[in-house]
Design a binder for these strands. Structure first.
Lengths: 202, 202
DNA sequence: ACTGCATGGTACTGGTTAGTAACATCACGT
DNA sequence: ACGTGATGTTACTAACCAGTACCATGCAGT
C-alpha cells in the first residue's frame, strides 16, 4: 500500500490524535506552517478545532509534535538501512544517499520539512527549534560515525561534505526545481566518497 | 560606514520607495516574509501603508521587488569580485567562497534570503518565484562558466558541488547554528577544488 | 439503565491583516 | 501667489486566525 493511502486510512479509522498528526503532516509539508490554519488541519483530520486543542496546547506545540513525528520516521528509515546492510557502513551511506535521491526525484518534493520549518520559524524560542536542532545534529553525527567506521580519509570532513551537499540539494530543488543541480546530487556524493578513499591508486 | 548605518541613513533621507525597500529588506530577511506585516514595513520606512501601496500594487509585488534588489546587489558583488581578480577565474571563485563564508560567520545570518523566500512561498504562481529561479540559475551558470575557464576537471560537476555545498551551509546554519558543519564550508570547498585540479601529482 | 469521559458542533472573543476611501498637507515649479 | 502632484493621516472594510465557552452526543464500563 502506498504511503498516501496509508495516511488516508489513518485519517479515517485511527485515533483523533493520529488523524490530526497525519493531516498536519500533509498540510504543513506541502503548504508551509504559516500557510495553514489549525481549522484546516482539523478539517482534513475529519474532526474539529476543539478536539485539536484537547490534544495539543497550541499551534506551536502541534508543529513541534509534527516535526517530532518526522524525526522519528527518519530514525526508523535509518534503522531499516542499518538492518539491510549489516556491518557495511559504506553501503549504509550509499543506501541513504539513494533514499534521499528518490525523495528528490518526486515532483512534489518540497525539501526537508525540518529545515523548512527552521526557515519559517525564526524565533529561537519556538518549541520546534529544539526538535530541529537535535535531529539535524544527530543525523550529522551518525553520518560522521559511519564515515569513520567505513575507513574513509578525513571522515568528519567527508560526512560534512555529504551532509551539506544533501541539504543544499533539498533546498535548491525548491528554488530551481528538480532539473537543476539538485537532481544530480547522488552522483556528486559518490564522487566525494571515491575521493576520500584511502587507496588513491587503482 | 557600515552597511547598517548606510541603511539607516537611507531610511531617513532617500525617496519613500527606497526607504520602503530598505525597510522590507531588514524586516523580511530577519523575521521572514509571512512574519512581517506591511504596516510594520511602512513604519520602519518612516512612512505609512498608503504610500507603500502607491509604490507597490500588493505585498506580493513588494516581496518580488525586495528579492529583485537582493539579486541586483549579489550581481554587483560578483562584478566587484571580477574586477578584483581580472583574468583569474579560480581566484574569483575563491573570493566568492570567502565572501559567503564571511556572511555565514555573522551571528545573525539567516541564510540566503532568496532560498528562504522560496520556502516561505510554496505557491508556484507567486511573482517572487521567477525572480528566485532566475537568480539561482544565473549564479550556478556563472559558477560553471568560471570552473570551465579555470581549467578544472569536470567543471560542471565541480560547480554544482560547490553550489550545493554553499546552499547546504546556508540552510544548515539556520537549523543547527554556525557551530555546525556550515561553519567549515570554506575549507570543504577548497578541498573540492583541489580534487578537481588536473595535475594529481605534486 | 446509569455514569463518566472523549468527542462533535456551534458560536464566540479579541486580535491581526491586506487593502481602500477620503481628506489634509507639503513641496516645488511656474 | 498658484496649482499640481506626491505624501501624510485617519478611519474603515472584510477577511482571517488562534484560542475558548458551552452544550450536545455517543460510547465505554458497570
Amino acid at each position: 500500500m502506498s504511503r498516501a493511502s496509508v495516511q488516508t486510512r489513518d485519517r479515517q479509522s485511527a485515533s483523533p490524535r493520529q488523524r490530526l498528526l497525519s493531516a498536519a503532516r500533509e498540510l504543513f509539508s506541502t503548504r508551509g506552517i504559516k500557510g495553514v490554519s489549525v481549522d484546516e488541519v482539523a478539517e482534513m483530520a475529519q474532526t474539529n478545532k476543539m478536539t485539536l486543542y484537547r490534544h495539543f496546547e497550541s499551534k506551536d506545540l502541534l508543529v513541534a509534535a509534527y516535526l517530532r513525528e518526522l524525526a522519528a520516521e527518519a530514525d526508523r528509515e535509518w534503522e531499516a538501512i542499518t538492518l539491510a546492510h549489516p556491518g557495511d557502513p559504506a553501503g549504509q551511506i550509499k543506501a541513504w544517499i539513494a533514499l534521499v535521491a528518490s525523495h528528490l526525484a518526486q515532483s512534489d518534493d518540497r525539501g526537508c520539512p525540518l529545515a523548512n520549518a527552521a526557515v519559517e520559524l525564526p524565533d529561537k524560542e519556538h518549541p520546534a527549534r529544539t526538535v530541529i536542532e537535535q535531529h539535524k545534529t544527530a543525523q550529522r553525527d551518525h553520518l560522521v560515525h559511519l564515515c569513520g567506521k567505513a575507513g574513509f580519509e578525513h571522515p568528519a570532513q567527508l560526512a560534512d561534505e555529504i551532509f551539506l551537499l544533501l541539504e543544499g540539494a533539498r533546498v535548491n530543488v525548491q528554488s530551481v526545481g528538480r532539473c537543476g543541480p539538485g537532481g544530480r546530487f547522488a552522483a556528486m556524493a559518490c564522487t566525494l566518497m571515491a575521493s576520500h578513499t584511502r587507496t588513491g591508486t587503482p
